[in-house]
């Protein structure tokens, strides 16, 4: 049995590019993304997995990067809002958020977009109920949720 590790060499896919990094076990994924790779689109807010501002997709599933350790990315696929924005397939969601003014300060928006992408990947035609259910773990403190729900709905329609 190998001894307990104080550092780990990990390899994973970050925004479609292969990445290698050495991390300490206690380093949260958000620190690796923001401080090592300069991907500051991922926002730290509540730091306790409640608000969703730090949402990234790990193998396509939303996780809170404020708390998930960086080593959990080993051998997996990480998508941040920067990788999302660089993908042509993301334009319907981005345009729908702009068209519907689905943000004010924008701090929650990276997490909202990634949660919405994950929803539409799993269910391309979600009902309003399904959108609210899926997105309820992402908190916005300025604009309210109506325009966000409408934007996700519009993006689903536009992608059809």
């Amino acid at each position: 049995m190998p001894d307990a590790q104080e550092t780990l060499a990990i390899a994973f896919e970050l925004n479609s590019a292969p990445i290698e990094a050495t991390v300490e076990p206690q380093t949260p994924l958000i620190d690796l993304l923001r401080e090592r790779f300069g991907l500051t689109g991922t926002k730290r807010s509540c730091d306790v997995q409640v608000c969703g501002a730090c949402t990234v997709l790990l193998d396509g599933a939303p996780v809170s990067s404020c708390t998930v350790p960086a080593f959990e990315a080993r051998g997996r696929v990480v998508l941040t809002v920067e990788g999302f924005a660089a993908d042509e397939g993301s334009s319907p969601l981005i345009e729908a958020f702009v068209n519907n003014a689905a943000f004010q300060c924008g701090f929650c928006t990276p997490g909202m977009l990634l949660a919405a992408k994950s929803l539409l990947d799993a269910d391309p035609s979600p009902s309003e109920e399904a959108i609210k259910d899926y997105m309820r773990g992402n908190v916005c403190r300025c604009t309210g949720y109506k325009k966000i729900v409408e934007a996700v709905h519009e993006a689903a329609e536009a992608s059809r």
Binding site: Q49, V50, G52, T55, L58, A61, P62, V63, S64, V68, A115, Y134, R136, G137
Partner: peptide
Amino acid sequence: VANLRVRNV
């Protein structure tokens, strides 16, 4: 339980 991100982990 909790929220989607917590349930995923």
